[in-house]
């Protein structure tokens, strides 16, 4: 039981640490942490279905982008301020996720991966072409949010609170009977059917959750960058959370966040040295997949296992 307490205590300590960082770090670094947190949430939302549910989605950017565009359009066309816009955007993304999920979950495994990718690309084309509504390839620029939110330090705290809450919510979901049913489905779907599980609904609801959290991340991104553009929906954006989850460690909770942090750092550091940072990203993934399939955090967790509560 003692180890369990450490499991809840450490994240809180980490939050306090981040809170204090907000007081001392210059805006430049706060912006980096904001980006890490948003991408961390994006990655975690995918981890929910991919890591725990075994559903490989190659179109998760559809929901990140949908959330981003929903918030951007709400900010542009209605008098809504950021917080209600994000809330509305989240609900809309959930509805969109329900439709996409209902279509894609008619197929399984690799077919599911291809269908998710195909549908996200459909959204990309739509966003790219529909100048009147989405700004086409230019995207939507120059959005205004309240002056309070424009201040990087304030926005830092806002993102910290939202992402923190979402992580907590995802944690609760994963530790619930629903979350364990998801793991059971990943392990052995056939068996759960004979236990009386409604597999399709179970997966669809998980998919909608994942879509909504990705939508929140997308909305937070618009609040940070004050714009939305088609690349947010593109297939390369769908690959990012997958890479982060693998980088950090699939089948671990904190791996998604660790992966996002490493991803942003790598992009900055390598991107500064060479324009070919994607080459190194690709090479890194190959090495990880070949030799360290459990990811960085997965490796750390293995070493720390005796000291921490079981986090699977």
């Amino acid at each position: 039981m003692k180890s369990n307490r450490i499991g809840t205590f450490l994240p809180l300590l980490f939050l306090v640490f981040l809170f204090l960082l907000g007081q001392i770090l210059p805006n430049f670094y706060l912006r980096i942490i904001i980006e890490m947190a948003i991408l961390g949430l994006f990655a975690q939302s995918l981890n929910l279905i991919m890591g725990y549910g075994g559903m490989i989605s190659f179109g998760h950017a559809a929901f990140y982008g949908f959330g981003a565009y929903a918030v951007a359009i709400l900010l542009r066309d209605t008098g809504m301020s950021l917080v209600p816009a994000i809330l509305t955007g989240t609900v809309l993304t959930g509805v969109f996720g329900f439709i996409v999920g209902a279509i894609c979950l008619r197929a399984a495994k690799l077919y599911f991966a291809i269908l998710t990718m195909a549908i996200s690309q459909l959204l990309f084309v739509l966003v790219y072409q529909w100048y009147a509504f989405t700004g086409g390839d230019n995207g939507i620029h120059g959005l205004t949010v309240s002056p309070w939110m424009t201040d990087p330090q304030h926005y830092y705290y806002f993102v910290l609170a939202v992402v923190g809450l979402c992580f907590f919510a995802i944690r609760v979901i994963l530790n619930s009977p629903f979350g364990y049913t998801l793991r059971a489905l990943r392990d052995n779907q056939e068996r759960t059917v004979f236990l009386g599980a409604y597999v399709w609904w179970q997966k669809l609801i998980a998919f909608v959750f994942a879509a909504m959290f990705a939508g929140i991340a997308g909305g937070l991104y618009v609040g940070y960058d004050h714009m939305a553009y088609p690349l947010l929906v593109n297939w390369s954006k769908s690959a990012e959370p997958i890479l982060m989850v693998i980088l950090g460690g699939i089948n671990t909770f904190w791996g998604a966040l660790v992966g996002a942090v490493l991803f942003v750092i790598m992009e900055m550091v390598i991107g500064k040295i060479t324009t070919y940072w994607l080459f190194f990203l690709g090479a890194t993934i190959l090495i990880l997949v070949m030799f360290f399939p459990k990811g960085i955090w997965g490796y750390v967790e293995e070493k720390l296992a005796p000291f921490l509560a079981r986090e699977r």
Binding site: I173, S176, P177, F178, I205
Partner: peptide
Amino acid sequence: SFNTVSGF
């Protein structure tokens, strides 16, 4: 299995 809030 649709309970998402209780600690499993």
